[in-house]
Structure formats: structure tokens, C-alpha cells
Amino acid sequence: MGRVTYIEHDGTEHVVAVEEGVSIMEAAVQNGVPGIDADCGGQCACATCHVHVDATWLERVGGPGEAEDELLNLAPERDDTSRLSCQITMSPALDGLVVRIPESQH
């Protein structure tokens, strides 16, 4: 179990306990965090679970894979901290992770 903080574009914070091995997209959907639509159900195919990873966590989370990178191009607010949350899996190293949900996805 690790903790993830999701911050909405208006500043509202949601702290969710996430089991190891579960994607932080899935955890957000199951806990009703708004702004994570995840239309494709976590197959890295729709770019509706876009998050910005907090700068202090970037290195530990790592960058997107090739297919994810292409899909992120569809997201209006893509930047260097962008990831698809369905592609980030909870692990002990990510306990305390902070991500922000883009305004274009509310």
C-alpha cells in the first residue's frame, strides 16, 4: 500500500491509498477522483488519464514509453512532466507520489 496525492486543477487534493501493482489511473477511478476518465480502460489507447507528475517525483516515476509518448501528443496540456496515469504502477518507491490533473481534463 502506498499513498498518492491527486491535485485537481482548482487545487482540491485527493489522497488515495493504492495497492502495489495497481495503476494510479485505476486507483483514481475506483476512488472517484474527478478528471481521470480513462475511456479505454487502461490500455494506453486514449490519453484521457493524463497527469502531470510533481517535479520532485519525476525521476522515480520515469518518462513515457514510445506508444504513451505518441498518445500524450493528443493531450492539449502536454509538457515535460506529462504521463498517462494508466502506465504508472504503484510500487514502494512511489509511496507519497504527487500528481496534478490538467484543467483540460475536468
Binding site: D37, D39, C40, G41, Q43, A45, C46, A47, E70, L71, N73, L74
Partner: peptide, 17 residues
Amino acid sequence: ARPRQHISFGFGIHRCV
């Protein structure tokens, strides 16, 4: 339960803009 799970918009980089 999951109404958004459909394929009408397509998936991947050409998904309906």
C-alpha cells in the same frame, strides 16, 4: 456500469478529436 467502454471514437492516435 461502464458506459464509456465503447469503440465508437476509435482508439490510439486517431481517436476522435
